[in-house]
Design a protein around this nucleic acid. Sequence first.
DNA 1: CGGCTGATTGACAGGGCTCAAGATAAGTGG
DNA 2: CCACTTATCTTGAGCCCTGTCAATCAGCCG
Lengths: 239, 239
Amino acid sequence: VVNPLILKLRQYDSLSAAEELLLGKILGPVREVAAKQDLIAEGSRPTSSTLMLEGFSARCKTSQNGKRAITAIHIAGDFVDLHSFLIKKMDHSIQTLTPCVIAKVRHDDLLGMSEKHPHLARLFWLSTLTDAAIHRQQLAEMGAAPAIRHFAHFICEMYLRLAAVHRANDMRCVLPVTQEELADTLGLSAVHVNRTLQEIRALNFLTWEGKNIEITDWRGLQAFAEFDPTYLSYGPEPR
Amino acid sequence: VVNPLILKLRQYDSLSAAEELLLGKILGPVREVAAKQDLIAEGSRPTSSTLMLEGFSARCKTSQNGKRAITAIHIAGDFVDLHSFLIKKMDHSIQTLTPCVIAKVRHDDLLGMSEKHPHLARLFWLSTLTDAAIHRQQLAEMGAAPAIRHFAHFICEMYLRLAAVHRANDMRCVLPVTQEELADTLGLSAVHVNRTLQEIRALNFLTWEGKNIEITDWRGLQAFAEFDPTYLSYGPEPR
DNA sequence: CGGCTGATTGACAGGGCTCAAGATAAGTGG
DNA sequence: CCACTTATCTTGAGCCCTGTCAATCAGCCG
């Protein structure tokens, strides 16, 4: 089994053997975490960053009125809090949505990497830049798109992200996320997510039964969602 | 006049004399750009990144139906497209909102900096991480907060960001942004921005006449907006 | 003094929310 | 392995926040 981080970084640029070796070395012990657990608490100051090896987790902000907003969903190969290396203090929490497999990387090692392996450091930087690009895309959706288009766009994005780390292929993927979690992600109510999902099903671009999604008309879905994968920066280039 | 980039980076960590010197060296010629101009075009592949020295600009995504979404407003000291150093292809455009003064930094020089000045590179990285944190905050607002709270939060944020680069003080700042631009930023209609602004005025936390804002009750505004500046990462720490 | 752009106001419609109740699916303990 | 409990998904009804359309008002500039 290949480290999904390597799969992800290879989407950005080719890695040298030395770099791949180093990526293996700086990984701490592999750990399993149950679903619905806090991986990282809001307000904490982590001394290591957490890499997802398997499962789904969410970045959550909870406002005073108790509403939870999910600002990102993370999958295998994603660092859930790489930014805590430089941001220091978490301004939001990370919760597992499903059972997860994780490994930690000490900030000391990240510091060393930034000093001695600038190319790798740039790829790490890029991965946080891509996170930001995803946020921007989502902001644009929330601001200007009706719920159904935003939802369709989200599906396109998740499929490609899962495919990049070999967790999806052949137009099929598994999305073990409840409608309530989708609601918090899309900024909708759970009820409206349910209704919008039914509308999407009626468009016949995909089937969605339980957690299993099969996209039967990728072109159609993509066009409907106005999805342009540029912002994901997939496609190796010298960086 | 101090380079506002230096002012901004000093909020994150102290800079060595050599670093400040370098920051001056890599800056290209200072240029003025009129209002309502494209600084960077969507789809372009810049070979340099643009630093704002004065003025206001916006990151824009325009969807097929013609609606413009502004995903960020940039001020003096902000790189509008530092990410293009590693992301390569712009997935959105940058437009000036007011007349701006800018300077460019060649990507070659950024590459050199990442190889030879890792500490400075980390601060640049951090500045993009802060951009992402701002996006996340905004996502949370759009998803879970009513328009008026989102608006109030935006005012708190802009005041602190302007103050960080000495463009605001004494609870006063200038925000030369039209209500339509605010609408695209907050994900509202221009009409609703106008009505929400009147509601905010009625709360008596601030006065807002033309472009001039004076916050008369910072505590009250902050509490109402549920504003916690943690996500801006101001306050020097070793990074 | 016209012609802009931007701010303001009114009337009306609609997308999405809330509340509430059932129907299914998924765990859990015995 | 079954009965029970809980979580998740559906569906309906009514309302409210926010959008759209349209018109008026206020500055600003040539």
